[in-house]
């Protein structure tokens, strides 16, 4: 079987599914000043697992919106305007749904796969670890 290190190069999915891989990628993104994109990606996964009957879930949706989308951060810049509008409306109308961040996460993930992930695989941080 492939070692974890080899799997990291196969896809972003494998990298982020591995504790050491996710940690190293996070260190890389901190250096590139775009760690928010990864935190947002994990926040979307965490949100999807939350219980919609729990009052905390609506609060978390609002916090994710405020922290990453409303403030025009790097995450917001990588997201389509229609996607941001959809999330803003959902939060405002309290239409909380497990899938409400799915499209946004997909857009951020595609950007990560095309850019940060490719850069990571040729970065000093990765090569030194290998």
């Amino acid at each position: 079987p492939d070692s974890p290190l080899v799997r990291w190069t196969k896809s972003l999915h494998f990298l982020l599914g591995d504790q050491d891989g996710a940690h190293l990628f996070r260190t890389f993104l901190e250096r590139e000043n775009c760690v928010d994109t990864l935190d947002f990606w994990f926040a979307c996964n965490g949100f999807r697992q939350m219980d919609l009957k729990d009052s905390k879930t609506a609060r978390v949706a609002k916090v994710i919106f405020k922290r990453y989308i409303e403030n025009n951060s790097i995450v917001a810049k990588q997201m389509k305007p229609a996607t941001k509008t959809f999330i803003r409306d959902s939060v405002k109308k309290q239409q909380i749904d497990s899938a409400m961040f799915d499209q946004a996460q997909t857009e951020i993930q595609s950007n990560m796969e095309e850019n940060a992930y490719q850069m990571f695989l040729t970065s000093d941080i990765y090569l030194e670890y290998v």
Binding site: P4, D20, F42, A43, C44, G46, R59, V63, I64, R67
Partner: peptide, 20 residues
């Protein structure tokens, strides 16, 4: 009640990969 930061951090941490 949890602060906004705590809520977000818990949400992120819950989705992080666990030890191999």
């Amino acid at each position: 009640m949890d602060s906004e930061d705590d809520l977000l951090q818990k949400c992120i941490t819950s989705a992080m990969p666990k030890q191999r």
